[in-house]
Structure formats: C-alpha cells, structure tokens
Computed example of a mutant assay.
Amino acid sequence: MPKKRSPSETWYKNIRPIIWKRDGEKCVNCSTCISLSECHIDHILSGLKGSNKFSNLRTLCPRCHVLRSDNNHRGMIQSALGKNLIVADWRKFVWDEKEY
C-alpha cells in the first residue's frame, strides 16, 4: 500500500478512469482489453516507497496483477487459485519490472 491513499470516492470516480483511459483500456503487461470495472490499477512502486502519482500507476488485468513479482502481492495468490484465475504452476508465469 502507498503511504497515503486517496479517498475512495476520488480513487473510483477520478483516478481509476483516468489511468485506465490513459493505458488504452487494456492491461499494460499482456495487452488484454479490460473493462474499467474489472481492471486493477497497480502501483508500480508499491509499499511505503510508492505514491499515487499518475506516473506510478498503471492498468493491469487481474491475472497480471496477481502474477506480478511483488512481495506486497503474496496474499492474492490463494484467492486467485481458488477462482481459477491462475494455474497451479503459477510460479513460471510471474513477471517483474525488468521484463516490463
């Protein structure tokens, strides 16, 4: 999580749509078209070092968001497996910023 979060109303009504539109309404990692309601707005630099600046935000599909190599995302794996969002051998699909 970034140090300071935007209020929910600002995040959902303003920031999410702006980032999604900027990114062409698709996942910036796999280029899959995705609806605003299904997309994830990801912090490129997450945790205490991250910010909500637009330059630190990007659109990801749920699968790419879960598979991003980021210690802050570890808790999403079990849920994604249960929803069949990722496969059992998910580790070979993990990606990091060096590949982005």
Rank of each mutant, 00 (worst) to 15 (best):
M1Q: 09
M1V: 06
P2G: 03
K3T: 10
K3C: 04
K3W: 06
K3R: 13
K3M: 07
K3D: 08
K4Y: 10
R5F: 05
R5T: 05
S6Q: 04
P7S: 10
P7Y: 03
S8R: 11
S8E: 07
S8K: 13
S8M: 01
E9I: 12
E9M: 09
E9L: 13
T10P: 00
T10Y: 14
Y12A: 06
K13T: 13
K13I: 03
N14H: 05
N14A: 03
I15C: 00
I15E: 00
P17V: 01
P17L: 03
I18Y: 09
I18R: 11
K21L: 12
K21Q: 14
R22V: 03
G24Q: 08
E25I: 01
K26Q: 11
K26P: 00
C27Q: 03
C27K: 01
C27N: 03
V28F: 01
V28Q: 12
V28G: 02
V28L: 06
N29W: 13
C30M: 04
C30Y: 11
C30E: 11
S31F: 07
T32V: 10
T32D: 03
C33Q: 11
I34R: 02
I34A: 01
S35C: 08
L36P: 08
L36S: 06
S37I: 11
S37F: 06
S37W: 07
E38G: 07
E38I: 05
C39E: 02
C39I: 08
I41A: 01
I41K: 01
D42L: 00
H43P: 02
S46N: 06
S46V: 00
L48R: 14
L48H: 12
K49I: 01
K49A: 05
K49E: 05
K49L: 05
G50Y: 08
N52W: 09
N52V: 09
K53F: 08
S55K: 15
N56G: 13
N56W: 14
L57P: 04
R58S: 02
T59I: 08
T59R: 04
L60T: 04
L60P: 04
C61V: 07
C61Y: 09
P62R: 12
P62A: 10
C64S: 07
C64R: 08
V66Q: 04
L67S: 02
L67A: 03
N72R: 15
H73I: 04
R74Y: 07
R74G: 07
R74E: 09
G75L: 05
G75W: 05
G75V: 05
G75E: 11
M76C: 10
M76H: 15
I77Q: 08
Q78S: 13
S79G: 11
S79E: 14
A80T: 12
L81Q: 14
G82N: 15
G82S: 13
K83D: 13
K83I: 01
N84V: 02
N84D: 13
N84I: 05
L85Y: 10
L85F: 07
V87R: 15
V87N: 14
A88D: 14
A88L: 14
D89T: 15
D89I: 12
W90A: 04
W90L: 04
R91C: 09
R91E: 15
K92Q: 15
F93Y: 15
F93S: 14
V94L: 13
W95Q: 04
W95A: 04
D96E: 13
D96R: 09
D96Y: 05
E97N: 14
K98H: 08
K98F: 06
K98Y: 04
K98N: 13
K98G: 08
K98I: 11
E99I: 14
Y100T: 06
